[in-house]
Computed example of a mutant assay.
Amino acid sequence: MFFVSIFITLFESSADTLLAFLKDAPVLVVVMTFFTVWVFLWLPVAIVSAIILNWRPGKPLQPEQKIPLLVPLYLLAPLVLWGINWLGFRAFSDYGFVKNSSIVNSLLLGFGLGVLGLVAVFTCQFYLGWCKWQQCNFKRVPSILLPTLLIALFVGGIEELVFRGFIFTELEQDYPIWVAAIISSLIFALLHLVWEQHETIPQLPGLWLMGMVLVLARFADRGNLGIAWGLHAGWVWAIATLDTAELITYTSTVSEWYTGKHKKPLAGLAGIICILGTGVILWLFSEYF
């Protein structure tokens, strides 16, 4: 009991020291501290997972290998933010994650808007002859709808909590809103390079623009994350469903910079138009949300 009491005293003292340091530190230091703790906690799990999956640095990750690495990483993010909350720094509600029915309504609204935007874009590409449907693969859809939906909600929720919630809110304390939006969106885009560089580099402008529109979605939702979460999840779900079921093929009648470099919509004009169109809708109709 004596050693336990000493441990508790040291832990509380360290927590108070860390809290005092974070409250006085520049906001970018706070953000870097969050990422450092997050990665530090995930690293042992990642090492064990990499050994089990027989993956080595420099070796491309296969889609089936990413999930065992991503799930623990994403599960740890709310725990780290909860630790910040426990230290008395900020609450989840400060980051736009509210515990009431309004976030569900906003989530559904954003999800519908995200999916409809992609439906419109791919429908236009179909009529322009840029792509064609693989009707023989439609039978694959029912079995993948629910898994991809759960993954999309999970990934979208965690990424919105971290980037449009924690990072944007913290940056907003020291910088004008537009600067905080630019920096948080840039961090969001660049961190996608961690998993894949070759296919991600052409998507960087689109990912940055996506981050900016999702910040706008938070403002449209009166500071909450519901619409942003729904948009993010809707985009991920629709693209993951199309890719997993192999529902479309591109006809190569135009440059892939129109349809998306490496078959990634955000790396092409069509994806950029989809994101911009969503931003315009949020801007024009935010008072009705």
Rank of each mutant, 00 (worst) to 15 (best):
W195D: 09
F166T: 03
L231G: 09
W195N: 12
G268T: 00
A267K: 07
L207E: 12
R222A: 13
N224C: 11
L225F: 07
A238R: 02
A245T: 05
F166P: 00
R222S: 14
Q197I: 15
H192S: 09
I182V: 15
E256Q: 14
A220C: 09
W195C: 00
G211T: 09
E196C: 00
T244Q: 15
A245N: 08
T241L: 15
P202L: 01
T241M: 14
G234E: 11
N224W: 11
G226S: 06
I201F: 04
A189C: 06
P202V: 01
I248K: 04
E199T: 10
F188Q: 11
A245D: 07
W235I: 12
W178A: 05
S185C: 11
L193F: 10
I167D: 05
G268N: 05
L216H: 05
I239F: 12
V179T: 13
H262Y: 15
I248Y: 07
L266V: 04
Q173G: 02
G268I: 02
H192L: 03
S185E: 10
T200G: 05
E196T: 05
F166W: 12
I167L: 13
F168D: 07
G206N: 09
R222M: 03
G226L: 03
W178R: 03
R222P: 00
A180L: 03
V179Y: 04
T253D: 11
E172P: 02
F219K: 06
L266Q: 11
L209V: 10
A180E: 06
P176T: 11
W178P: 00
G260R: 05
L207V: 08
W178Y: 12
E172F: 00
F168T: 12
L171H: 03
L186E: 02
E246V: 12
L204F: 04
V215H: 02
L266I: 02
L214G: 01
A233L: 05
W208Y: 06
D221E: 03
I183A: 01
A267R: 07
W229E: 05
S185P: 12
L216V: 09
W257T: 09
A220D: 00
A245Y: 07
G234P: 08
I248F: 13
L247E: 06
I187D: 11
A233D: 02
A267N: 11
Q197L: 12
A217V: 05
Y175M: 09
I227D: 07
I167V: 15
I167P: 08
D243L: 10
M212Q: 10
L247I: 04
V179D: 00
I187T: 09
P205K: 10
Q173R: 15
W178T: 12
S252R: 14
K264C: 05
R218Y: 00
K261A: 15
T244H: 13
F168V: 04
P205D: 07
K261Y: 14
G206T: 02
A267H: 10
A238G: 02
S185M: 07
L242K: 02
E246C: 00
F219Q: 13
T259Y: 05
L216D: 06
V213M: 13
Y258S: 10
A240C: 04
T169E: 13
W237L: 01
A238D: 00
W257L: 14
L190D: 00
W257S: 08
V215D: 01
H198T: 15
